[in-house]
Amino acid sequence: MIRAVIVMSTQGKPRLTKFYDFQTPEKQQELIRMVYGVLCNRPENVSNFIKADDIFGPDSKLVYKNLATLYFVFVFDSSENELAMLDLIQVFVETLDRCFKNVCELDVVFNFNKMHTILNEVILGGQVLETSSEEVMKAIEEISRLENKLESVALKSSGEDFVGAIGVVLNNVAF
């Protein structure tokens, strides 16, 4: 099972965090800090796996990938294959790249919701769902299609109220 997904900047600032077992915000912060403490001391061009038993409890490893100014970190246990997890990071990053067209840290920073939506298509409840970025893109597109459809329906019904409300505000200002 995948226990957590963390994307953080090389300065240690979290950009995306998802824990598949509930953790309180304080605990999350502590875990992220510990992970960063390990990552920032890793020399370059060394292996991407770290035993994380003292951070996430027994039988946990993490795999990370440093891309530009970001660390992508997946925490997992012995039910997952190390190299497959490394591939999965690749899938995730590829999907982001497709989605944002040459993804950079700013995209990640300003698209909090979308990041989670993408992640939820790749991993659900700690289980790997989808390993093709194309399929993920399809799902994302379907979401926005449906969103637009529902939105246009909603707008029709609430549009008049909104105009009326503006009128009230303007009236208040006028008097």
Binding site: Y20, F22, N120, L124, G125, G126, A139, L146, E147
Partner: peptide
């Protein structure tokens, strides 16, 4: 619709 199902299933799988 699938997106709504996905949302609910995701929530269920975590919480």
């Amino acid at each position: 619709p699938s997106p709504i199902l996905s949302l609910a299933l995701e929530f269920l799988s975590v919480a």
